[in-house]
């Protein structure tokens, strides 16, 4: 996991992470302020107390992370190749997009194929149908044997 020492890009990454934490703290705090307008019933602390505590904690941690990052003492970010990761992310997005009209099997086949592609295996015209066939079997088991519902498409309508 240890990477090369150099690279201001890595340091920049740590700074961005710290700033993101502070931003999250801001969102939580803003929501707590919004809750201020809400009436509550009965005694005890209301729905705002914990969000405030968490927002303050996150903000402090964000600042601490920022200090560490600015001093260049943050843990090196692991070197990543985004190309293959994008294939997998694309597969997950593709599944979500296809699910409602192409049905579970085809959409999940695409996920399977694109994940394999991310790991350097293909071709997609072969892996997607393999994934779809596997998913189709799972679909039949889930919907027929367990009476659960999964999104159906043209393939699923066949059974």
């Amino acid at each position: 996991m240890s990477a090369s020492r150099e690279g201001s890009g890595r340091k920049l990454g740590a700074i961005v992470v710290a700033l993101a934490l502070i931003a999250v703290a801001g969102i939580v705090a803003a929501d707590a302020i919004r809750l201020g307008a809400v009436r509550t019933f009965g005694p005890g602390i209301g729905p705002r107390a914990f969000p405030w505590a968490i927002a303050i904690g996150l903000a402090l941690l964000g600042l601490a992370n920022l200090v560490v990052a600015l001093r260049g003492k943050a843990v090196e970010a692991a070197p990543v190749e985004m190309g293959p990761a994008l294939w997998v992310i694309g597969g997950l997005v593709g599944q979500i997009v296809l699910l409602s009209f192409a049905g579970f099997s085809i959409a999940t086949g695409v996920l399977f194929g694109m994940t394999a592609r991310g790991f350097g295996r293909g071709p997609l015209w072969l892996t997607i149908p393999i994934g779809a066939a596997l998913s189709f079997v799972l679909y039949v088991i889930f919907t027929k044997a367990l009476a659960l519902t999964l999104p159906a498409g043209p393939l699923e309508k066949l059974v």
Binding site: V137, V140, I141, K144, A145, L146, A147
Partner: peptide, 16 residues
Amino acid sequence: PLRRLLAAAAILATAA
């Protein structure tokens, strides 16, 4: 798991 699930399916199918 598939083989076992198919066995499950067979039992369940008779129960449905």
